[in-house]
């Protein structure tokens, strides 16, 4: 019996280590193959003749897309969350809103991309551009910002609100200066996780923000925009030379680094927040 227990424990341990190892191997492989390409020129030059040059417009494009996405999704998401958590009573309307938010979270990104293409690009006639791409990404991360913000707002102790209201402060002032003030680390964590999702998303961007290897910087939000995920997709599927592959590894490394920095920041913030909530 004892031996059998030990064997099972070993097997379970092996499974856990294997799953971490696989994921670390992927990141490590990209790092080892990509680090050689990274140089100041690679980061600050535009691509030319398909597989030469650097990825400057792609980096800037990705950052711009995420910025547009956040400008849309953060105010919408936080406002919806405040309404759901603070104002709404439990009735048909709020239950419907919550159900639809859950629905939105489950929609595959390619469907959101198709919707962006038909609605933003053609129906609203925005064209394939930074604004369409950013808004479509915003649709994608909206449910995550709503959910994270609502959860953060709900963990604020009731006594805080009651104390503030008892002092004669109005409800909106209470929310602004008491509730949001103690909930903001949780809200920011949710936003950061959404950012991580948005920056690596390919399908949505491919359909709404531009599929070419644009080598110029966008002049306005109505210009098509290059981005890192699309660059990786194009180079990996259409470039078949070693120059193309090494640049793809370089771009992958930049993308993964951006993603990991955002996520690590989010996790650290969340852990600090949880510890603070625990101490109360």
């Amino acid at each position: 019996m004892k031996v059998k227990d030990e064997i099972v424990k070993g097997g379970l341990c092996a499974a856990a280590l294997l799953s971490v190892a696989v994921l670390l191997i992927v990141v490590g492989y990209v790092f080892v193959n990509g680090i050689g390409v990274i140089s100041l020129n690679f980061l600050l030059e535009s691509p030319y003749r398909f597989e030469y040059g650097g990825i400057f417009p792609q980096i800037i494009g990705s950052i711009c897309l995420v910025a547009v996405c956040l400008i849309f999704a953060v105010p919408m998401g936080v406002a919806s969350a405040i309404y759901l958590a603070e104002y709404a009573s439990d009735n048909v309307i709020t239950r419907t809103v919550r159900f639809f938010v859950e629905c939105l979270a489950g929609i595959p990104s390619i469907v959101i991309g198709l919707f962006g293409l038909i609605f933003l690009v053609y129906y609203l006639d925005l064209g394939i551009c930074m604004l369409s791409g950013g808004l479509a990404l915003g649709f994608m991360i909206l449910p995550w910002t709503v959910r994270a913000s609502e959860e953060a707002i709900k963990t604020v102790p009731h006594a805080y609100r009651e104390a503030s209201l008892a002092l004669g402060v109005s409800k909106w002032r209470t929310i602004r200066s008491v509730v949001l003030k103690s909930a903001y680390p949780g809200i920011i964590t949710g936003i950061l996780l959404g950012m991580g999702k948005a920056i690596g998303e390919t399908a949505v961007v491919l359909l709404t923000a531009g599929s070419g290897l644009e080598s110029f910087l966008p002049k306005s939000i109505f210009d098509p925009v290059a981005s890192l995920p699309v660059y990786i997709y194009m180079m990996a599927t259409q470039g078949h030379t070693s120059a193309a592959y090494s640049r793809t590894f370089g771009a992958s490394l930049v993308l993964i680094t951006m993603f990991l920095v955002i996520s690590i920041f989010a996790l650290l913030l969340r852990n600090r927040y949880i510890r603070r909530m625990g101490r109360r």
Binding site: S19, V20, L23, L24, V26, V27, V30, L193, G196, K197, I199, G200, E201, T202, P229, I232, Y233, A236, T248, F249, S252, L255, I256, F259, L260, S263, I264, L267
Partner: peptide, 15 residues
């Protein structure tokens, strides 16, 4: 580690 890798960009995994 596992939590960090939940959202790893799928395009990188594909490559």
């Amino acid at each position: 580690c596992v939590e960090l890798l939940v959202g790893i960009p799928s395009i990188v995994l594909g490559f």
